[in-house]
Design a protein around this nucleic acid. Structure first.
Lengths: 199, 199
DNA sequence: AACGCTAGTGACACCCGGTGCCACAGGCAA
DNA sequence: TTGCCTGTGGCACCGGGTGTCACTAGCGTT
């Protein structure tokens, strides 16, 4: 009801997601065929593609909801708060997962950031995030969403978030810390670059 | 000789590129089949895939050379220059095309930034750029290339460059100006965000 | 001239992701 | 019972990409 093809049995979908995720993690995304996922989940290939428009989409969970929450957070920020800080806060809140869900998030992100095919696919998903952030910046600054600054802020803040995820996956401390550090660097024009000049 | 499968007749390759580019521009990337490109160029489908590993790769010209030039520029920058400025300078020099080549560049970029499938594919190509820039930052700051700051600088400067290209394609003035503006915003922590608070 | 080597090519079969179509089963309301 | 609506499977098909084999043209040897 919510979107186009998203009203089939929700439990089937969840099971399908987990089966796919586990297979991808174990064998690698490209080496798992849609047939194998379907068979492992006890359904037909055709049905698999009714739940997910693409093999890659099985990795993303409810990403549309994620973007919607981000948009809501952005819309709810106080006009008194600096724009960049409001974006940082929204990213932090939206990515504040309960500890029990961290392993799943880690599994998803390891695939998305590690598998080339998914890395490519992610660009399509992230475009929605960028649109939301750019619209927020445009609203706050009174500039057109297609102008340089809104676009630039959207893509580079997303770059910050992605980088924080990568560092987190590589054992670089809590995700929230990474996000804050990345946004701080961004907001200050990369002060860390002045630390050790030359080599 | 240079790379793996890149030693077939260079003129055939160039003709193939232009044929593919024109077809993609006219009909849209997804609506043009490899068969059609091959037929229009007077070769077989199989041969097309010997020149380009992927339909998408027909759009990129000599991107490996582009990355190599960027790397060389980065390596040649003075240690006295601020890191961000050195990256900006490298991007500017590498993208300083003679006016005669601008229409071709525009055609390529319009496809890469406009067609979803190519947008996704671009992520794989840009990964090389990011690696080069991150290595440069790591060299200059004495930090590991996989650390947060090098990664973040690499992805957000590339975001700046991409945004400048988008603005350029939409008629927002010369490419070099857009690049400089984008890097200036980045280096100063987005001062334009403070221009008009509230809405 | 005949030989052999190599590079580029085409044809074919095949795999896989994705889609359109039809047929079927189950639940549920009239 | 009849009808509808939802989820499902099967099948054929398209298109991107690959492995393999056979053919040709060029070229240097002898």
């Amino acid at each position: 009801m919510t979107t186009a093809q998203a009203d089939l049995r929700a439990d089937t979908r969840a099971r399908l997601e987990q089966v796919a995720l586990d297979l991808f993690t174990a064998e690698g995304f490209e080496r798992v065929t849609a047939d194998e996922i379907a068979e492992a989940a006890g359904i037909s290939r055709r049905t698999f593609f009714r739940y997910f428009p693409t093999k890659a989409d099985a990795v993303w969970g409810d990403f549309a909801g994620h973007v919607a929450r981000l948009e809501a957070r952005l819309a709810a920020t106080s006009p008194a708060q600096p724009v960049l800080a409001s974006i940082c806060a929204a990213y932090l809140e939206v990515n504040d997962y309960p500890p029990a869900q961290l392993p799943l998030l880690q599994q998803r992100m390891r695939l998305i950031l590690g598998e080339p095919a998914l890395q490519a696919h992610s660009q399509l998903r992230y475009a929605d995030v960028d649109r939301a952030v750019a619209a927020h910046v445009a609203r706050r600054t009174g500039v057109a969403p297609a102008a340089l600054v809104p676009r630039l802020v959207a893509t580079s803040t997303r770059a910050a978030a992605t980088t924080a995820f990568e560092v987190w996956l590589n054992g670089g401390g809590p995700l929230a810390d990474g996000l804050r550090r990345a946004f701080d660097e961004l907001a200050a024009g990369f002060p860390a670059l002045l630390a050790a000049p030359g080599h």
